[in-house]
């Protein structure tokens, strides 16, 4: 049975943590104890961030759709209401993309929507 000392294992563990804290502020990037603490915290932030991302994007799409609506003489709220009435199930992501990349199609939608509503 070979003799086992703790050095190599500790070094490997420290290296694994410090690799993930690159770019952190001050000693947090290269001091193990600080790094470990903020690494765990960073996972918490990342977890929250993944949930917030969905809400943030939905908010952005709504702002963009509203801007495009107002260019076409209607509002976000009116467009959405009439789209639901007309049974058009395009989501906000697609609508926002249309507003940027295909304004003519978006215009047709607003007309269709206002005719239905």
């Amino acid at each position: 049975m070979p003799r086992v000392k703790r050095g190599p294992h500790t070094r490997r563990r420290h290296k694994r943590v410090l690799k993930q804290t690159k770019g952190f502020w001050g000693g947090r990037k290269n001091r193990f104890r600080q790094a470990l603490r903020v690494l765990w915290k960073s996972w918490q932030y990342a977890y929250v961030g993944r949930k917030l991302r969905k809400r943030d994007f939905r908010r952005l799409w709504i702002v963009r759709i509203n801007a495009a609506c107002r260019e076409n003489g209607t509002s976000y709220s009116r467009l959405m209401g009439s789209l639901h009435k007309a049974g058009i199930e395009l989501d906000r992501k697609v609508l926002a993309d249309m507003a940027v990349n295909d304004p003519t199609a978006f215009k047709a939608l607003t007309e269709l929507a206002s005719a239905a509503g």
Partner: peptide
């Protein structure tokens, strides 16, 4: 720029 469909925060 909130009046444009290209608004980016």
């Amino acid at each position: 720029g909130k009046h444009k469909p290209t608004f980016t925060p």
